[in-house]
Design a binder for these strands. Structure first.
Lengths: 187, 187
DNA sequence: TTGCTTTCTTGCCATATGGCAAGTGTTTTG
DNA sequence: CAAAACACTTGCCATATGGCAAGAAAGCAA
């Protein structure tokens, strides 16, 4: 349970943290290619990755896989869009290696929010954290070339060590063919 | 003060709303091209647009203006990235027509958050709302062509009636030249 | 209104990215 | 280990978008 606690220490005072952390379920395990979530399912839990890597993706109108997001150990994972919209999942959430998560049902989370404003404060802070991340990624799309976006990823071993290039390509908004050419150009 | 109240009724129960709405300052007026905020300034308030339109922009490394966001009457406005990061503004926020806003200092807002969890609930919900919006815009960049993104805007009179095309172009992530050609192609 | 400034369009050509299909190398699985 | 599946690269050519500069149109100010 250690890293789960570490994660929430950024958001919740020490006095209040135990009840919150203890409300997370025991570990759930995923093999490579297992799905944590599929389109149409209820996205009624918050999950913390103890081990492994997930990717969030969907199929566009031409049937091409588009990877929208990655999550690594020490992070939350899920279809955040559906979670916040309170709608059914629109994305697949898939383990891309062996993974372990702890999760908390959304109903439990909401009860905790009612019992202690510190927990609600976490919910607010976390949504703000998500906003910041997505805004920065959006700005990157708006103002940078695919090559510049790729160079940003190069600096982060999380992307370069565990993620197949074809997933990175669609995450960058380009085809795997184009990413291959960009890589050739750089070196 | 009417529309301000209407806005917050989506987030805050009727019993609690008056104190919140009354904490907003009296109206502040802006002429066309006036700045609500400039890079480096403190972004220590939350502002509600009673009338008019603002745009959020910055200058990229080549000195080109990039419009990041628009806000219309009935919406909040500010440099949300800085507001959530608790850092200095990175963007210009400029009136693109005569505008009126009411605002609340961030310090007042934070005190309100402490007095009533319903207010904190608003802060959480609003950050979630922002997340959803930015995620959808990001997805649009990741998966759509400039022409498809432009067609989305066409459906919304807010964009097409008040915003010069050159601002729309950079908002779409393209040059005004390219937008002009896309428009020609469509019609 | 008149003139000035800003916005928008267009032509010419350059660069970025895509689509397809073949070829090579690597991983998975039985 | 061997076959199959998957991941990555490359060549050829197409489409999307950019850069620049000139001109047309629209908006603004005196």
């Amino acid at each position: 349970m250690n890293d789960l606690r570490t994660f929430f220490e950024k958001y919740i005072p020490l006095d209040d943290i135990d009840q919150f952390v203890n409300s997370f379920d025991v570990i759930q395990k995923f093999k490579k290619k297992d799905y944590l979530l599929k389109p149409g399912q209820n996205c009624d839990f918050l999950a913390f990755i103890k081990k492994g890597t997930f990717r969030v993706f969907f199929y566009d109108s031409e049937g091409t896989e588009i990877t929208v997001w990655f999550s690594w150990e020490g992070m939350m994972v899920g279809d955040l869009l559906a979670f916040y919209k309170e709608s059914k999942a629109e994305f697949y959430v898939q383990a891309i290696e062996a993974c372990e998560i702890c999760s908390i049902p959304k109903s439990t989370l909401e009860q905790l929010y009612l019992t202690n404003p510190q927990y609600l404060q976490f919910g607010k802070k976390y949504a703000e954290f998500v906003s910041i991340n997505v805004m920065e990624r959006m700005l990157s799309f708006q103002t940078k070339t695919a090559e510049e976006r790729y160079l940003e990823l190069l600096a982060n071993p999380n992307y370069m060590q565990k993620i197949p290039l074809k997933y990175l390509a669609s995450y960058l908004g380009i085809t795997d063919t184009s990413l291959s050419r960009i890589r050739k150009n750089i070196s």
